[in-house]
Design a binder for these strands. Sequence first.
RNA 1: GGGGAAGUCGCAUAGUGGCAAUUGCAACAGACUGUAAAUCUGUCCUCUUCGGAGUUCAGUGGUUCGAGUCCACUCUUCCCCA
Length: 375
Amino acid sequence: MHFDLLTTDSKSQARAGVLHTDHGDIPTPIFMPVGTVGSVKAVHMHELKEDIQAKIILGNTYHLYLRPGLEILRTAGGLHKFNGWDRPILTDSGGFQVFSLADSRKITEEGCKFQSHIDGSRHLFTPENVMDTERVIGADIMMAFDECAPGDSDFRYAKKSMELTHRWQDRCWKRFNETEPLYGYNQALFPIVQGCKYAELRKISAEYTAEKDAVGYAIGGLAVGEPTEVMYEMVEVVNAILPTSKPRYLMGVGTPANILENIERGVDMFDCVMPTRNGRNGMLFTDHGTINIKNKKWERCFEPITIGGKQMEDGYTYAYLHHLIKAEELLGLQIASIHNLQFYLWLVTTAREHIIAGDYTEWKSGIMPTLMTRV
RNA sequence: GGGGAAGUCGCAUAGUGGCAAUUGCAACAGACUGUAAAUCUGUCCUCUUCGGAGUUCAGUGGUUCGAGUCCACUCUUCCCCA
């Protein structure tokens, strides 16, 4: 697996490239739909491929480990075989669950003890067994096991957490290098930079992480409660240190505006639950701004929903989607999810075109006000 | 025609004499960033300077310090027998 950097914008840090994997090429910048349990919620595989043009999706180690479980995944021949997705897959390590399941886990030097959110059973995640699990899942890109500390962590805790993540990172590398892929194709390990909202820590973490020759590097622990401006600052600090020849993945980000701002700062890969989760809850990203399709004002809007000024093949109107969501029809969740993912993929694809054309910053300035608009 | 039951804020419900009144649905908003989320939160009689104030529980009258709750009659609905 390797990355080709094709273009770097002359007026910013924005880059266009291609990440080559055994399951196909990923043009960057890219947005990766989140498919926690091996499914992008409410979206069928053929819709991901054909309608949305997704190039890579995520899975989650914690969730897949709990259900269906490793024995099933191993017997199936890995997640690709199990769910039928033949393009690249990236698995998060469970590091985010260290953050989001704070009430039912305990962190030690060894790893993190979790209590299952499904049946309350107790489990221990260590850097070593997470590597083994990601081997079994068979993700093209395996994420290191880290602690995603809360955005409001104080310096003392942030430093301690970062140092633990670094020690875990070393153990991940060791286990990764001692083991082989199980299904005949290559897997890469992406280490994760931490350090919360402290530039000093981010710098240390980026330097520490960049020492290892990885296929790509991730920036974690952002968009977890800190102000947006702080997130941008931290990305700048980190990207000034990470090697330019490798892809940078900003984990869990974000809004369309967040994505363009971070592309400008040199980020190549993004993932976020926002287009799918918020879509299911009625939030739609449109050419006119962000809307809540449940609001009464869309009841009689018989205009088709467009993306980039173009009507999608199916041509749903605001009024129809309003009706479906209000009526709690499953088709509403499906259309909203597909629409938002189409919007996100259109956004990064168009950004890439403008980076290559050399007018990224101008294009971005033109579209930002709309992306920030709440209709 | 005779007998029985019941009428509570859009609908459905709770309500021992101390209640602006329970809960669900609907409605109207808001939140959501490496998914414990088809979830969660708020408002939901009127006005409000957010401290409160004013009108309410089919209608009218009554008992009581005090009535959605007790009594009388009226109206309406449902059930059973003719």
